[in-house]
Amino acid sequence: MTYAAWMEGWWPFIFILIAGALPTEIWRWLGIFLSKNIAEDSELLIFVRSVANALIAGLLTKLVLFPTGVLDAAPLGLRIGAALTGFAAFYFIRKSILIGILIGEIILLFGGYFLGIF
């Protein structure tokens, strides 16, 4: 059973609730109910946080390496270079998220401009 199974009527909204909202919300609820009982630095919590972090990092990497939308207008090497430079700028310049984004964007957009893409 997939999203495209029934495009009509309420199915897309039910699909979103079952496949998107519920599996997200369940962790928020569990966090509330367990917050009285489990220490935040317990082994189990470190493990689940590691799994989540690895999955999200994988997701973000896929957005850069295999973009499905407009980002594929920029060549792969430029996307990788801009992402790595942006992150390095963040890492080495006061852990500033703004600086990371600005440097990454400058490399990507000016790089694209000089390559004649935009």
Binding site: I18, P23, T24, I26, G31, V48, A52, N53, I56
Partner: peptide, 20 residues
């Protein structure tokens, strides 16, 4: 849908420790 649920759940599991 089962694989989507699993992927979303794994991506969102961080909310539990965050809220705790």
């Amino acid at each position: 849908i089962t694989v989507v649920i699993l992927g979303v759940a794994l991506a969102a599991v961080r909310f539990m420790p965050m809220i705790m």
